[in-house]
């Protein structure tokens, strides 16, 4: 399973670029990033090419950063691509907690990242339906 990096960040100017600066200095590439606003703070969730290194360098600089498995699924970048996946989850009453997506090959493939209430069952279920769940390394290979 892919690993997602969560970083606690103050909700004020100059903090996000502190994170991206630290990652740049360690030559870490960001594949996707999302930020949830929680009034005084936010939690930035990132997919990076080296999550363990990213966590270490951020914590060395005083950030609170945690790693967490996340489901990253290849879907088609076509109408109905995401719908097909969500139908499978809905049929088994699996709840999506947090999610975001990004396109890797326009018109062909996109990646859908999500946290669900039952990751083990979701993984089994999606694999059974022939969907491709990406591991960390795969997230950064050029073709999938």
């Amino acid at each position: 399973m892919a690993e997602q990096l969560s970083v606690f960040v103050d909700n004020r100017p100059g903090r996000l670029n502190a994170i991206t600066g630290i990652l740049r200095d360690s030559q870490i590439n960001i594949r996707a990033m999302t930020i949830a606003d929680h009034r005084d703070y936010g939690v930035a969730k990132l997919l990076v090419n080296d999550p363990h290194l990213a966590q270490r360098v951020l914590m060395e600089q005083g950030f609170a950063a945690a790693l967490k498995p996340v489901l990253a699924i290849v879907i088609t970048d076509q109408p109905g691509g995401l719908h097909e996946l969500l139908e499978i989850l809905a049929a088994r009453q699996i709840n999506v907690l947090d999610a975001y997506g990004f396109v890797v090959a326009p018109g062909q493939r996109a990646v859908w990242c999500m946290e669900v209430d039952d990751p083990v069952e979701a993984t089994r279920l999606l694999s059974t339906h022939g969907l491709h769940l990406l591991a960390d390394g795969e997230l950064y290979t050029k073709y999938y």
Binding site: Q4, S6, F8, A36, H38, Y41, V43, K45, M59, G62, F63, A64, A65, A66, L67, K68
Partner: peptide, 11 residues
């Protein structure tokens, strides 16, 4: 301030 070691990533 949050205590970094107890941060789980869950908002």
């Amino acid at each position: 301030e949050i205590y970094a070691k107890l941060f789980t990533g869950d908002p």
